[in-house]
């Protein structure tokens, strides 16, 4: 057991070293860490709580504009809340939604994909057809529909996002398992009389986990955008919970008079997704060089 831990730790250190030598992955990682810190320490970092403010103070422009005040660096929204503070708190929503929904999808996809790819047969047929069926729905439309049924709220949001996105992982894991299964090391393990469970978890999984991790990283960005899109349509988390998408939506009626209300949270969102994608693609270059886009 200890040996395992040590190996994993050594691998992680090695990975970190490789990331540091990959400039775009490093930039992505640094920004990402900054966002995580921001989310974790939001109450300390944010100048105000996310929901305080006064209607009297509404539509203050950012500090550098005429009429702006250094007390509200990025200005205030239509009910006078500090936009910077809400962006900082909003990082919590986005990161949580992104990580949690991908983690769940990954686990479901991994289990079902491995079963499907390893055993084939009727289970594989059923699961694959079902996956194909789900693929025929546009993701956003599907999520909107699920949210309409469940109603807004954090966990409903996670459910809506994972309902379909496990399929991506399923397809990847299934495909990889099928191709790994015929390789010599699996044959060898089988010849040694190892159980199917051991073969899948001990032999096949470590060999395909790289591509799963890469896919997971890239999907986090996509999930965050989808969550923001749902919030933008008014069916994400509840108002009061500062989500970037609903902040952009709030400002939509006022783009003629107060451009910053929509612009600022969108910028925060863009930067985060950019960082995740930079990091994810860097990770892919390192872990999965055969997919490298040169």
């Amino acid at each position: 057991m200890l040996m395992r831990v040590r190996t994993v730790a050594r691998n992680l250190c090695g990975l970190l070293y490789l990331i540091c030598r990959h400039p775009s992955a490093l930039i992505g990682l640094v920004i990402l860490v900054a966002y995580v810190v921001m989310a974790l320490f939001a109450p300390v970092l944010a100048p105000y709580p996310p929901n305080t403010g006064s209607v009297r103070q509404s539509f203050l422009p950012p500090a550098w504009q005429e009429g702006g005040s250094p007390a509200h660096l990025l200005g205030t929204d239509h009910v006078g809340r500090d936009i910077l503070s809400r962006i900082i708190y909003g990082a919590r929503v986005s990161l949580w939604v992104g990580v949690l929904s991908v983690a769940i999808s990954m686990v479901v996809g991994l289990v079902l994909g491995a079963i499907s790819g390893y055993y084939r047969g009727i289970i594989d047929d059923v699961l694959s057809r079902f996956a194909e069926l789900l693929m025929a729905f546009p993701f956003l439309l599907f999520a909107i529909g699920v949210m309409a049924i469940l109603g807004p709220g954090f966990f409903n949001l996670i459910a809506a996002l994972t309902f379909k996105s496990w399929v991506e992982f399923f397809r990847l894991v299934r495909g990889e398992t099928i191709s790994e299964k015929t390789k010599e090391y699996v044959e060898a393990a089988r010849a040694q009389g190892q159980s199917n469970f051991r073969i899948v978890t001990g032999e096949i999984l470590p060999n395909i986990i790289h591509s799963v991790v890469v896919l997971a990283t890239l999907r986090v960005g996509y999930m965050i955008i989808t969550e923001a899109s749902l919030s933008f349509l008014g069916i994400g988390v509840q108002p009061g919970v500062p989500a970037w998408g609903s902040m952009v939506d709030d400002g939509r009626d006022y783009v003629r008079t107060a451009w910053w209300v929509s612009t600022m949270p969108g910028l925060a969102l863009l930067l985060l997704v950019l960082a995740i994608n930079l990091f994810g693609e860097g990770l892919r270059d390192i872990l999965d060089p055969r997919l490298k886009v040169d």
């Binding site: 952009v248 400002g251 783009v255 969108g266 994608n277």
Partner: peptide, 17 residues
């Protein structure tokens, strides 16, 4: 790279602005 990271709803609003 920006293109794939850009949320469509935000791009739309910025281009309207």
């Amino acid at each position: 790279f920006f293109g794939i990271s850009m949320p469509a709803f935000w791009l739309g609003i910025i281009s309207i602005i």
